[in-house]
Simulated scan of single mutants.
Amino acid sequence: MKDRQDVVPIFIFSLPRSGSTLLQRLISSHPQVGTTGEPWIQLLLLGGLRSGEVYADYDHSIAAEAFSNFFRNFPDGKKTYLNAVNHASKKMYKKASDKPFFVDKTPRYSLICDEIINAFPNSKYIFLWRHPLSVVASISNTWGNGSWNPNRYKSDVYRGLKSLVECYSENEKKSFCLKYENLTSQPEKEIEKLLSYVGLEYDSKKIIENFYNEKGWNKKYNEMGDPTLNSENLRKIVKKGEYEWVKEIKNILRKKWAKKYIKWIGKNRMQAMGYKFEKTCSKIEECNIGTSKFFDDLYANYIKDVLSFFLEPSIIRRKLDKLSKGKKVNRYG
């Protein structure tokens, strides 16, 4: 590989609970690849260009409009800003880890993956998929204490998934596509293909060996990563099948939600991710359901969701926390 004066970003695009931390750790086990936990910096640098639902002390919709007007002063418009983001980000990546490649893994990049590709046209893009119902099941078990609560994460399971599929379809030829289920069942084979795409020469078996020995990985990197990682499973690659989610469809609420969700995703999106629409539908129908978690799910995914829509408890909670500490509370624009 030729010497590089500039760091080459490797972006992992995925939904939360899709194995991105595992993939990040595997890639960073290569001696020429650096990383940190989840930087999130592009959400601030590029996500701010959108006029969507951003709550702040200022009126973000006006700020986004002002941003757009400001770009009109440049001969090449928004491209000037994107180039600046590219340059500044690479300087930070280089400072964070002085290696030729840097892995930036932040699941919420699913919302701005197209903006990232526009700002970093010569980078590497990995689209990591996991069966969408496995994602929902893992989200519920990890952040919902076992209650089925995907409505709490609509920005991920709906907007994020739609954005990822559309972005991958538009950039398929210059991207690398990987299924989490394949990564866990045949890691050496998948890592070998990934290294070839990135342009790195290394023995994939050595990558796995480094992974188990935690070479290239600092535990502090996980401060913003997978909350389930601990000293026991940090060095494990656990094989996961495409239909792990079936055992989580425990009651009629989950079954109805799953059917509706897969219908929304549709055959084309499922196919783009590498999953079978018809087989998924039949697996849902075959699920043996009972009453387990019924009332927990009813509250978490429906009653609580309606209350959250109108009351925005997360915002109220933050304001109350500030007041309890004697801090000033501002109105969100």
Results as ranks from 00 to 15, higher is better:
324 S>M: 15
276 K>F: 00
307 L>T: 15
287 C>V: 00
80 T>L: 13
273 M>P: 05
285 E>D: 11
259 K>F: 07
162 K>A: 11
92 M>R: 06
230 N>H: 15
254 R>A: 05
38 E>C: 13
48 G>P: 02
249 I>A: 09
269 R>V: 10
81 Y>P: 02
292 S>H: 08
120 F>I: 08
195 L>N: 09
323 L>K: 07
304 K>W: 08
201 E>T: 08
239 K>W: 14
163 S>F: 07
248 E>I: 04
207 I>N: 01
104 D>G: 11
59 D>I: 05
311 L>T: 09
57 D>P: 14
330 N>T: 06
23 L>C: 09
184 T>V: 03
168 Y>M: 09
164 L>K: 06
211 F>Q: 05
15 L>M: 07
162 K>P: 10
256 K>P: 01
260 K>P: 02
307 L>D: 14
278 E>L: 02
136 V>N: 01
30 H>D: 02
41 I>G: 01
43 L>P: 10
229 L>Q: 05
269 R>E: 11
64 A>K: 07
35 T>D: 01
322 K>N: 12
9 P>M: 07
256 K>F: 15
49 L>H: 05
5 Q>W: 15
50 R>Y: 14
250 K>C: 07
130 R>W: 13
116 I>L: 02
236 K>I: 12
298 L>V: 05
214 E>K: 14
219 K>P: 03
28 S>F: 00
243 Y>M: 00
257 W>Y: 11
199 G>W: 14
292 S>C: 11
86 N>K: 03
219 K>V: 11
238 V>R: 09
304 K>L: 13
2 K>E: 15
134 S>Q: 03
295 F>R: 00
124 K>F: 14
41 I>H: 01
248 E>K: 09
264 W>G: 07
138 S>I: 02
288 N>K: 11
245 W>V: 01
230 N>A: 13
310 F>K: 08
195 L>H: 13
186 Q>M: 15
268 N>P: 01
182 N>R: 04
85 V>D: 01
138 S>M: 00
298 L>H: 08
141 N>W: 01
218 N>V: 04
66 A>M: 03
26 L>K: 00
168 Y>E: 09
41 I>M: 10
279 K>V: 04
118 N>H: 09
261 Y>A: 06
288 N>G: 02
275 Y>Q: 04
48 G>V: 04
325 K>E: 14
248 E>D: 04
111 L>D: 01
